[in-house]
């Protein structure tokens, strides 16, 4: 059985998910997500240690494609979607640190 959801857990998760929550939203989400997680506790009673997790309903394997070049998109069409572009590239504001 997992521990009950705390307000600071919700705040941490919001940071991970890149969402800003108001104080009122923090309270609301803590309560609502807590209810869903509490409902999920019905699963924890089950002894499923020997059960294999299913990520896919059907056991397909080795789905591959040949290493053959296919058409890429036209650059103008790609950059047309961009909120901001410069010199044929997507422009973003200051990046604060190296990639992890």
């Amino acid at each position: 059985m997992a521990p009950p959801l705390r307000r600071e857990d919700v705040a941490h998760v919001a940071r991970l998910a890149r969402l800003t929550l108001s104080e009122a939203e923090l309270d609301m989400f803590t309560e609502q997500l807590g209810q869903v997680l509490e409902h999920a506790n019905d699963m924890s009673a089950l002894a499923l240690d020997d059960v294999v997790a299913t990520a896919h309903p059907f056991g397909l394997t080795n789905v591959v494609r040949e290493d053959v070049v296919t058409a890429s998109l036209e650059r103008a069409r790609v950059l047309e979607m961009a909120p901001d572009a410069q010199d044929g590239r997507f422009a973003v504001p200051q990046i604060m640190g190296d990639a992890p």
Partner: peptide
């Protein structure tokens, strides 16, 4: 360099 830059451009 990344530090001190005010804007970055991305090529995919």
């Amino acid at each position: 360099r990344i530090h001190g830059a005010d804007r970055s451009l991305v090529d995919y």
